[in-house]
């Protein structure tokens, strides 16, 4: 059985890490390569990089960023944002991504998931599912970096996506993202108990306790951004708390470098 993963997330625009609240008001939060290396040293189990660039120039910068991160990183790197075609995914993989996250493009064209799984294997295909609550125990799918809600039930879409070949769900609560109020535990519970693939919980983490709660709710991995970027907690401190709560964690080792 794999141990729970702790995954710092880098939202990258035009080669810089940014962080906003509910996908808005982005502010600069540092150099992605330095941060990825630091988080690995602190014991991160994986890095997720979300490309939030809005322009083709920004996308080019992101490919260079992926390559630069890959050079220093000896843990897995998942890259999402703007992947619309097999060719986009191949370019990200070629640059150094190990897994590819897709959201908007998969909603618009679900067959993309089959094509990606066929080409690269399910273990490489992550469905980035942004979910917005609308009443008790129900969530809708949100696309375009939080901009557009689509008339699609989040749980139903998650089931369909895994049947089509997604091998993991990066599950973000749009309601909680950037609010520091903790993960949407009900959402995590609903998705992780329904699906057979691993689920990464995302959106709302502000303390190690929030990450522990998400794992207790059934998440296989926990993703957080600002608590690490702001230096409130190191990855190591968070993993200590998770271990203290009774979960096995991968021990922190000396840097590979």
């Amino acid at each position: 059985m794999p141990v729970p993963r702790v995954i710092p997330c880098l939202d990258v625009r035009d080669g810089r890490v940014v962080k906003g609240v509910r996908f808005e008001n982005l502010r600069d939060a540092g150099d992605p390569v330095e941060q990825a290396a630091l988080y690995e040293q602190q014991g991160a189990d994986e890095i997720v990089m979300l490309d939030v660039s809005a322009t083709p120039q920004g996308r080019g910068a992101s490919l260079r960023t992926v390559a630069a991160i890959r050079k220093v990183l000896s843990i897995p790197l998942t890259v999402g944002g703007g992947v619309k075609t097999i060719a986009d995914a191949a370019a990200m993989l070629e640059a150094g991504a190990d897994k590819i996250g897709v959201n908007t493009a998969a909603v618009k064209n679900p067959a993309l998931l089959e094509a990606l799984a066929m080409q690269f294997g399910s273990q490489c295909v992550v469905l980035a599912l942004d979910a917005l609550a609308y009443g008790k125990g129900r969530w809708r799918v949100v696309v375009r970096s939080g901009q557009e809600t689509v008339p699609l039930d989040a749980l139903g879409w998650a089931i369909e996506a895994t049947q089509r070949g997604a091998g993991e769900i990066l599950l973000t609560s749009v309601d909680r993202d950037g609010t520091h109020s903790g993960y949407d535990l009900e959402l995590i519970q609903a998705v992780s108990s329904t699906l057979g693939v691993p689920v990464i919980a995302s959106g709302g983490a502000a303390s190690p306790l929030h990450l522990v709660e998400a794992l207790r709710a059934g998440a296989d991995a926990v993703l957080a951004a600002s608590i690490f970027h702001d230096g409130t907690f190191s990855v190591g401190q968070v993993k200590q708390e998770i271990a203290a709560a009774g979960f096995a964690v991968r021990p922190i080792e000396e840097s590979a470098a």
Binding site: M1, P2, V3, R5, D45, I75, P76, D98, K99, G121, S122, Q123, C124, G167, E168, G196, V197, P198, D220, A221, R250, P251
Partner: peptide, 30 residues
């Protein structure tokens, strides 16, 4: 009855080529 793909860090024993009794290795396979 387990999550598939097997994605993440699992204990292996004995770790090849190193003299530790066990190690954590990263897996991604079905």
């Amino acid at each position: 009855d387990v999550r598939v793909p097997h994605l993440g860090w699992s204990r292996i024993s004995p770790p090849p080529l190193t003299d530790e009794p066990e190690a954590f290795a990263y897996f991604a396979h079905s």
